[in-house]
């Protein structure tokens, strides 16, 4: 759980900086979409047996492009934005991959990963949404 909170902490801080702070009144779906895009991809990539390292790195780009698209941009002129979102997305994807591995090894889900994945997804979504609300309330005060 320590790894999860750290990964989510970094993620929310980055997407707050480059996404949430630029948009007002986001719906839950829109607020958590960048993270969900990463989760969805890494789940599929793992299921297909692709290489963890390379796909986790690719998730860094998925996070960036998700943010770009949600902020109505095709490109960014900020190298820092690209670098930060890439690192955060990569770490998150890597963490999720390990989590899914662990769940499988613990034999919590002998018939397939879907229920565990759903559980993980809902837990992370809730945490991110809560974080969004906290950060937004903090910034409004």
């Amino acid at each position: 759980m320590g790894g999860e909170s750290e990964a989510i902490q970094k993620l929310t801080s980055a997407i707050y900086k480059w996404y949430w702070s630029r948009k007002n009144d986001l719906s839950r779906d829109d607020a958590i979409k960048p993270a969900l895009d990463v989760l969805e991809y890494i789940y599929k990539a793992r299921k297909e047996g692709l290489d963890k390292r390379s796909e986790a790195a690719y998730c860094g780009s998925i996070l960036l492009y998700s943010v770009l698209s949600l902020t109505g941009r095709r490109h960014t002129s900020e190298v820092d934005e690209a670098n930060e979102l890439y690192e955060v997305g990569k770490n998150l994807a890597s963490f999720i991959w390990d989590e899914l591995d662990e769940m499988r090894n613990d034999d919590k889900d002998p018939d397939g990963l879907d229920p565990t994945y759903s559980e993980l997804l809902s837990r992370i979504s809730d945490t991110i949404w809560k974080k969004y609300k906290t950060l937004k309330e903090g910034s409004n005060e």
Partner: peptide, 17 residues
Amino acid sequence: SVCDKHRPKECIRGSPT
């Protein structure tokens, strides 16, 4: 220099686009 600073290197790894 922008490419040098940019770590993800999507031009090598690929991106969703």
